[in-house]
């Protein structure tokens, strides 16, 4: 269980990274925290020609939380996000969800943007980005562009990122005062990929629920408020529309039930947290 051969580039600035992507396209893979890519290399499921290590690039170390929101550069590890002062006050959903991402031993290396790029349908970070109205900021040697999370994730481990592009950073807008946020997850064991993960945002009269682990990417829907008699029906419709499937760890039916029940609990918690 050893990786196939590849070249390794220790990039020193962003331009170097983008140059390699420009020249080598599909053959190149970004190596950030490596927590998803390395197992794939070891199993030889992925066989890139060149790995570009971006962790030495100063531009990617940006981690800033200002009035507009939170900017997380390509080189920021999940643990660094978790260590941000006031995270629980300013971004309660992130603070609640971080402990569910893998284990302490992988969060210490894994990056936020790497998880976004990997686009695993059961991973927490893509779900959080979608639920919080986040943006993915992409760069190629030619251009920079920004996509809302809802447009970035296009399917199973597939994204709108072009082959010559990389995720430069992700942006999560600051939570408006009075907005309620909640996150809940059910996995087989602690730290496993979610069977169902729910993230809810209650913003005044608008209530949104995002669900991970069921469809081929995180999906979000606006729902009625708790107490509204149509909520149950709307959750049921959402549960069915996600197209749950059976797999090794859970049945489609179980996933639908969790969307209904965990979804409702998450919505109610978000609504309660609303000031």
């Amino acid at each position: 269980m050893k990786p196939a051969s590849f070249d390794y580039v220790r990039a020193e600035d962003r331009k170097e990274v983008l140059d390699v992507l420009r020249r080598e396209g599909t053959e190149a893979r970004i190596l950030a925290g490596g927590q998803s890519l390395m197992p794939m290399l070891a199993m030889r499921l992925a066989r890139p020609g060149v790995l570009v290590d971006v962790m030495g690039v100063p531009e990617f170390r940006i981690l800033s939380d200002d009035a507009a929101g939170l900017t997380i550069g390509a080189g920021v590890r999940q643990a660094a996000l978790g260590a941000l002062p006031d995270l629980a006050q300013r971004h309660p959903m992130l603070a609640a969800a971080l402990p569910w991402i893998g284990h302490a031993q992988t969060r210490s290396r894994g990056t936020v943007c790497g998880s976004v790029a990997h686009a695993d349908p059961s991973a927490e970070i893509p779900l959080l980005l979608l639920a919080l109205g986040g943006e993915v900021r992409l760069r190629s040697h030619r251009r920079a562009r920004s996509l809302p999370a809802g447009e970035f994730f296009t399917g199973l481990m597939n994204t709108a990122k072009a082959e010559n592009e990389m995720i430069d950073s992700v942006f999560i807008p600051a939570a408006k005062p009075g907005v309620g946020q909640a996150f809940r997850e059910i996995g087989r064991r602690h730290g496993d990929y979610a069977i169902v993960a729910c993230a809810a945002v209650a913003d005044g009269a608008v209530l949104r629920l995002a669900v991970g682990g069921v469809a081929d990417r995180p999906m979000m829907r606006s729902l009625p408020q708790p107490g509204d008699p149509t909520l149950e029906e709307a959750l049921d419709a959402f549960a069915w529309d996600l197209g749950a499937r059976d797999d090794l760890h859970a049945t489609a039916r179980y996933r639908r039930e969790l969307v209904r029940r965990l979804g409702r609990a998450t919505i109610e918690e978000a609504a309660r947290c609303r000031a």
């Binding site: 049921d236 069915w240 529309d241 197209g243 749950a244 760890h249 859970a250 179980y254 639908r256």
Partner: peptide, 25 residues
């Protein structure tokens, strides 16, 4: 004994899928 295997004994019978949803499995 997994939660998914217990689901049918714990939860009430499930609603019929809406007409627009086709069985996926």
């Amino acid at each position: 004994v997994t939660p998914a295997r217990l689901a049918e004994h714990v939860f009430p019978p499930e609603s019929e899928p809406p007409a627009r949803v086709r069985p996926t499995t």
